[in-house]
Design a protein around this nucleic acid. Structure first.
Length: 208
DNA sequence: CCACCGATACTCT
DNA sequence: GAGTATCGGTGGG
């Protein structure tokens, strides 16, 4: 993990481009317990006021989604369903509330630590397969210890406890586009193919 | 394989 | 008060 963080300009593009470009990049999380890292294999684009599936649909600006309205390259972390955290990378320029939901990574480092975090507060069962430790947006946040305290964290800062590192682009032919998950409330917009997966990755959260 | 269902608490109307 | 960018378990084809 000697790679450089992604720079601000990487995120200062529309969410669709940022989402596709993020596949294959490296998410890193450092705490006193150690380092975990993984390769992004599944993301979703949320495209601002026009996108009925986005938290900023219709131009809504609230305390929760405030970070989405700010400059690109920061984490937008939110809480759902009474128990789960999810994280986004803010995209586009300041004032354009776009973001990319990070849905799954393939673990590269710290699988033991991820396993321990995933095991918290659950009946002891078999260990989770490594490829599944950060599969799904809430599982990813659990494995990476992402919660409200990281809302607005700078993903471009090499000293940030949560950051995104550059890596070679994945072959275009390996990118699959599907409708986004869990946005049935969005009417027609629920069908837009704005979820992107790395074909064949065992860490993708559902078949895409 | 699919369909539902409950958990659980924050966010905004 | 209603709704939720989820997950894991259960129960039926």
């Amino acid at each position: 993990l000697r790679r450089q963080p992604l720079d601000r300009a990487f995120f200062a593009r529309d969410a669709l481009r940022v989402a596709r470009s993020l596949l294959g990049k490296i998410l890193v999380r450092e705490t006193k317990d150690g380092v975990v890292a993984g390769r992004l294999v599944e993301v979703e684009a949320y495209r601002g006021p026009h996108d009925l599936a986005a938290h900023t649909a219709g131009g809504r600006r609230t305390p929760r989604n405030e970070v989405m309205w700010g400059p690109p390259g920061y984490a937008y972390v939110y809480f759902v369903y009474g128990m789960h955290w999810c994280m986004n990378a803010v995209a586009a320029k300041e004032g354009a509330p776009e973001a990319v939901l990070l849905r799954a990574v393939e673990p590269l480092e710290g699988a033991d630590l991820m396993q321990a975090r995933r095991a918290e507060g659950r009946a002891k069962g078999r260990p989770i397969p490594v490829a599944r430790l950060a599969s799904g947006p809430a599982n990813l946040c659990k494995a990476f210890a992402v919660d409200r305290s990281l809302n607005a964290a700078d993903l471009c800062d090499p000293r940030s406890p949560l950051r995104l590192l550059d890596a070679p682009p994945v072959p275009l032919a390996k990118i699959r586009a599907t409708p986004r998950i869990g946005v049935d409330y969005a009417g027609d917009h629920a069908e837009l193919p704005w979820r992107f997966c790395l074909a064949g990755s065992p860490s993708v959260s559902a078949d895409g």
